[in-house]
């Protein structure tokens, strides 16, 4: 991993975000929404509307509007929300932080479940546990999260009253209560990922267990546990990193649905509200931030891969 590679990747992320910003801007331009009408309401006088349009620069050519928006973005200014009158940037980033909490916990839970599950399924290939894991995985993949989320909610919150159904409590205010509220959404989001990742770990593990170097490690007389964890699992997990990075894309989409079900004020929910309210600056900021998160996640996955597999050199 050379500094050049690093610089190039950062440049590439910047370029991606630029393209996304163009797309986002183009789409919001095409929306049947008039910012002046949104702000002043349906009953505003034409004179007031015209004055506001002039003030907002809505009469400027499109490219100039884009340039104003973009240069403000580069200064860290995402604009003012039409709905709340507050700056969009801080609003979206604090929502992102809440989403990342859910996503991070879901990823951690997923890895904690999927890796051992895949490992055991590979070792007991064709056994009852492998079949059960396979069945659960296929169910997990085929059921959309609004179904699993709703079922979990009905069962664990509504029926058994083990957990609060919806809502969000900041982690720092009341950690225990906060986590109790997070259990259901985290469970829902991680379920689908557990499905792919455990299957992936299983098939990689089966391949690696048949590899020459695992056989060589066994025939060197190393204890079974050393062979399994040091020689086999480590190599089997490498391709899994890529899948996890791709899953971040799913996570960002899935989280919108889950936040809606469990009423978590994350970025997905903010985005939905923004779209409903035709809050253009919020929509633009939300879309850009999500794209940026995805790009950074993949970047981190590449770095992790290179650190774990020394054959990979980025230069």
């Amino acid at each position: 991993m050379s500094a050049r590679w690093f610089a190039r990747r950062c440049l590439f992320i910047g370029y991606t975000l630029l393209v996304v910003s163009l797309l986002v801007f183009a789409i919001t331009q095409a929306l049947p929404a008039d910012a002046a009408v949104t702000l002043l309401g349906e009953n505003a006088t034409p004179a007031a509307l015209a004055a506001l349009r002039l003030k907002l620069g809505l009469n400027d050519p499109v490219w100039l509007q884009y340039w104003h928006w973009l240069s403000a973005l580069l200064r860290g200014d995402f604009g003012i929300s039409m709905r709340t009158g507050q700056p969009v940037g801080p609003m979206m980033f604090s929502a992102l932080a809440r989403s990342l909490l859910v996503a991070g916990l879901a990823l951690a839970l997923m890895l904690a479940v999927a890796v051992p599950l895949g490992l055991v399924a590979a070792l007991r290939r064709g056994g009852p546990l492998d079949l059960a894991a396979g069945l659960i995985s296929y169910l997990g993949v085929s059921l959309p999260e609004f179904v699993t989320g709703t079922v979990l909610l009905l069962l664990l919150a509504d029926h058994l009253h083990w957990l609060p159904a919806t809502g969000y409590v900041p982690l720092l205010r009341n950690p225990l209560d906060s986590l109790r509220h997070l259990v259901l959404p985290v469970l829902t989001v991680s379920l689908v990922m557990v499905a792919h990742v455990s299957r992936m770990v299983r098939s990689e593990m089966i391949d690696v267990l048949h590899s020459d170097y695992v056989r060589a490690a066994r025939l060197k007389g190393l204890p079974a546990r050393t062979v399994l964890f040091r020689h086999a699992l480590r190599n089997a997990l490498l391709p899994v990193i890529t899948v996890v990075a791709l899953d971040v894309g799913y996570l960002l989409g899935g989280i919108i649905v889950v936040e809606e079900i469990f009423a978590i004020p994350g970025i997905g929910r903010e985005l939905i509200v923004a779209i409903e309210m035709r809050d253009l600056p919020a929509i633009q900021a939300g879309a850009l931030i999500m794209a940026g998160t995805y790009a950074v996640a993949n970047f981190l996955a590449d770095i992790a891969y290179a650190l774990l597999d020394r054959r990979i050199r980025y230069d």
Binding site: D212, Y213, V214, A216, K220, G221, N235, L238, L308, R310
Partner: peptide
């Protein structure tokens, strides 16, 4: 294994763990 009976493999590039 490894202690009383050792083994040398055909292809050293696959018999060694790459990581």
């Amino acid at each position: 294994r490894g202690r009383r009976i050792g083994m040398v493999f055909q292809d050293p590039s696959t018999a060694l763990n790459p990581t």
